[in-house]
Design a protein around this nucleic acid. Structure first.
Length: 576
DNA sequence: AGCCTACGCGCC
DNA sequence: AAAGGGCGCGTAGGCT
């Protein structure tokens, strides 16, 4: 285990003031449920209360002063409550997400994390496997309780109370309990935001979307036919290679190029761009248009855009680094070409906030490397880096630093990394130490304590199947290096995700006082808020304040600034 | 028909 | 010395 070095104290607990908690268990069927007030250490305060209308009881309790709601899974229970709640809930403790964080911290990554599984572990019972996560075609609501995997006859509320208390104890035993507490609170707040954002949706203009598609692909074809332009480009491509080749088949395309005397290593666009063969340019154009049509064409719009909103399903903790994933619609990959379709409602604005150079700043803050900290302090980190080590060549500085964080060693980038090692030894040593840990099969942690998984037991054998005729490295060595690149990047990416999650939570809390302002998008290092135009300045300053709060929570006092570029626009395409 | 992998590309 | 991290999704092409 390698911990991230730090000379700074733990941040304070997420809620310094004593705040009540309330455990929640919905009835298996119907609108009722049970509530159990808890002390901050998880001890029950008084008897549980049975209520006929859970949403109403939760709303009333929230109005008395928001407790931290403790429940099995936000994505299931909060999603059901939200429609019937007059307000949004301030705080929660998501047992499933916290269980996953703790299992990772305890290096038991592979274990199931449902409430039922956690309950079983507490009682020495066999652990039920996690249910298959799935989207729209899921089990009907009647079976929702089954998703928690509680053994039949188990009291849901008692299980919530017991697992919660046990989790608080496990957090307290961690190496940095304060940081882990922040992580659990931020992850849980993120789960609330994810449900809300999925509900509210991203403003999306079908007309603008169509205008973009039509300008690129021509008029919409009838039914599921492909646009004529794709047929024309296919024919043109086939004439150019002199064979009836499917342009969507990399194998056929490579063979056709080979027949005309051009050996390509792949059909990737950067390879095609270097080829002088006349078919290459046609193929590139075909790929570009075909991609838009198949990935974000009219069919996508009809499937995902309803009532002027794109509503993706966010999956909190969907990536081991703590980044979110999404299910359906590819929400985290909205192509730049389509951003004109993201438009604020009339009289509204989008406040788009983007954390610039987040990962290198995270590296500076984690390592405390004096040179890198100085470079970060100047505003443009890469420019500062360039002045210190690359004769002012900003692009080489950027390539070198990214290569160092990704573990690239070959070619020009490798030489740039060598220069970085001379000038920024502490930062580079942090990266190399985490890589060595991974190569040896160990785990590393983010700043707040999110822990990398261990490689599979047979990780070095499994890699033996890969074609390995290169160099002198054995398959096992190459597998070790690959895992080292993963852990090397994990610390930076996961700590950046810590910061972004803290930002989201802080911003969400600040926006609670402005009901017209809604978080509508979150992607790794960027948030978008939709609000009435008059509110935009307030939202923009809330964003700035939230960034400062996130920096303090995650990194404590640090000389490294984490600036958030904030823009107020009507259309997403106009941002930066 | 469904299931799986490889490939390629979009985003960060 | 070492040949670039994380995703979702669509298509092709092989498998059962």
């Amino acid at each position: 285990m390698t911990s991230v070095p730090s000379g700074r104290p733990d941040p304070p607990p997420a809620s310094a003031a004593a705040s009540a908690r309330v455990a929640v268990a919905p009835d298996p069927v119907g609108p009722g449920g049970r509530l159990q007030p808890l002390a901050d250490d998880g001890t029950p305060l008084g008897p549980p209360r049975t209520v006929p209308d859970l949403a109403r009881a939760v709303a009333e309790r929230e109005a008395e002063g928001p407790p931290r709601w403790v429940w099995a899974a936000t994505d299931e229970l909060y999603a059901r409550l939200l429609d019937r709640l007059p307000v949004r809930l301030a705080r929660c403790h998501d047992l499933k997400l916290v269980e996953a964080l703790l299992l990772g911290y305890e290096e038991r990554h592979a274990r199931p994390r449902s409430l039922g599984a956690a309950w079983a572990r507490l009682h020495g019972l066999p652990e039920p496997a996690d249910p298959r996560e799935s989207g729209a075609d899921d089990q009907p609501a009647l079976f929702a309780a089954d998703r928690h995997r509680l053994p039949p006859g188990t009291d849901h509320l008692a299980a919530v109370v017991a697992v919660h208390a046990a989790q608080l104890g496990r957090v307290a035993e961690a190496g940095h309990p304060g940081r882990l507490r922040v992580l659990c609170a931020a992850e849980s707040a993120g789960a609330l935001a994810a449900v809300e954002m999925g509900r509210d949706g991203l403003p999306w203009s079908a007309d603008e979307h169509d205008a973009v598609l039509t300008s690129l692909l021509g008029p919409r074809p009838a039914g599921t036919a492909r646009p004529e332009v794709l047929g024309r480009l296919t024919e043109e491509f086939q004439r150019a290679v002199g064979a009836p080749v499917n342009p969507d088949s990399p194998a056929q395309v490579l063979a056709a190029f080979a027949r005309s005397g051009v050996a390509l290593p792949s059909t990737r666009s950067h390879v095609l761009r270097e080829s002088r063969h006349p078919a290459a340019a046609v193929l590139l154009r075909y790929k570009e248009l075909s991609r838009i049509h198949s990935a974000h064409g009219w069919a996508w719009r009809e499937q995902w855009v309803r009532g002027g909103r794109f509503r993706p399903e966010y999956v909190v903790g969907g990536v081991v680094s703590g980044r979110w994933a999404t299910r359906g619609g590819g929400a985290l990959q909205i192509p730049r070409l389509l951003r004109p379709a993201v438009r604020a409602d009339p009289g509204h604005r989008l406040v788009v906030a983007d954390a610039g150079q987040l990962e290198p700043r995270v590296l500076a803050a984690l390592s405390g490397d004096p040179g890198l900290v100085r470079a970060a302090a100047g505003g443009d980190l890469y420019a500062g880096l360039a002045r210190a080590a690359f004769d002012g060549d900003r692009s080489r500085a950027k390539i070198g630093l990214l290569a160092a964080m990704y573990g690239q060693t070959g070619g020009e980038a490798g030489r740039l990394v060598a220069e970085l090692r001379r000038r920024f030894p502490a930062a580079m040593e942090l990266l190399e130490a985490t890589a060595r840990t991974g190569e040896a099969g160990g785990t590393v942690r983010s700043r707040l304590g999110r822990t990398s998984p261990r490689p599979a037991d047979d990780w070095q054998q499994a890699a033996a199947g890969a074609a390995g005729d290169e160099e002198d490295a054995s398959p096992a060595q190459r597998a070790a290096r690959a895992w080292g690149r993963f852990t090397r990047n994990f610390v930076v990416q996961a700590s950046a995700a810590d910061w972004a999650l803290a930002l989201l939570a802080a911003l969400r809390r600040r926006l609670a006082g402005s009901p017209g302002a809604r978080l509508v998008f979150f992607v790794h290092d960027e948030v978008v808020v939709h609000c009435p135009a008059a509110l935009a300045p307030v939202v923009a300053s809330a964003v700035t304040d939230a960034a400062a709060e996130a920096t303090a929570l995650v990194f404590g006092p640090t000389p490294v600034p984490f600036p958030l570029g904030t823009q107020v626009v009507e259309c997403y395409a106009d941002a930066k």
